[in-house]
Amino acid sequence: MVDKNMDVLIVDDYRTMLRIIRNLLKQLGFGNVDEATDGQMALEMMREKRYGLVISDWNMEPMTGLQLLKAVRADNDLKGTPFIMVTAESKTENVLEAKKAGVNNYIVKPFNAETLKAKLVSVIGQF
């Protein structure tokens, strides 16, 4: 079973979305949630603390979610971190690009709590 006390990092440049994901995760029992507002900030936080899961938006500045994902996968210490992309980018080429970069799963905004739960289970296992 998954340890719900794991540290989760959520990355989004919209405060509303950070809050929504944080609250939905809390409802699912994940209380240790940190927030970053772009890829660069997230990467720095990941180098300071080991996260059990990263849930990231794609479209952010200065570092996008895809750049963050590539940086994570290229870093020997971080490359095994489960990574879910939550984004409004729903085109096939986006999904394929993220898959190629090593994303574990992909959620298209807007999404509901059931979708988030199902994707979490598929990435980190049953909880």
Partner: peptide, 20 residues
């Protein structure tokens, strides 16, 4: 109550989409 609140959270994602 939690079920209803969850639906409100889900609906609030309109703000992110609108913003984009």
């Amino acid at each position: 109550l939690v079920e209803a609140v969850t639906k409100i959270y889900e609906a609030c994602s309109f703000q992110d989409i609108t913003g984009q």
